[in-house]
């Protein structure tokens, strides 16, 4: 099972953020931000100058880092790298798509929620299917 082996018993982990400036600012205010000695941040500020490549790299980096437990990503940014987000299937770090204020939340686009919805409606069928 994929989930079994790699749950670290880490006592403290970080929350990474890929979002627009306001969302990042807000979460940094809450004290989520972290800058380590090599000036690596645990957040990526996405504005109109940020390229998709940068977002991809950040996403890959955050999901590969050991000290990150949760990656928050704005939904419209997740849509830019949808293929990466969809192909990601590890339980840790958990990918959460969050709404951003400029882009209203669309549950249809959320990879997890769409699966949830699918399973929910197919619940009665599910028992037969299995």
């Amino acid at each position: 099972m994929a989930g079994r082996a790699n749950i670290p018993a880490n006592s403290s982990a970080l929350i990474a953020i890929i979002a627009d400036e306001d969302t990042v600012t807000g979460f940094l205010m809450a004290g989520v931000g972290n800058v380590d000695l090599r000036k690596k941040t645990n957040y990526l500020l996405v504005d109109n100058k940020t390229t998709v490549k940068q977002i991809e790299d950040a996403f890959k980096e955050f999901t590969a880092r050991e000290d990150i437990a949760i990656v928050l990503i704005s939904q419209y940014i997740a849509n830019m790298i949808r293929f990466l987000v969809d192909s990601y299937n590890k339980p840790i770090p958990a990918i959460l798509e969050i709404p951003s204020k400029d882009h209203p939340y669309d549950p249809a686009n959320d990879s997890v929620l769409s699966r949830v919805k699918y399973l929910f409606s197919a619940d009665s069928v599910a028992s037969d299917r299995r």
Partner: peptide, 18 residues
């Protein structure tokens, strides 16, 4: 917001997993 962005050092809010 610039003040906030500039003054990040280390995370005070962290998560623990069990």
């Amino acid at each position: 917001r610039h003040v906030v962005l500039q003054s990040v050092r280390s995370a005070s809010l962290r998560v623990r997993s069990h």
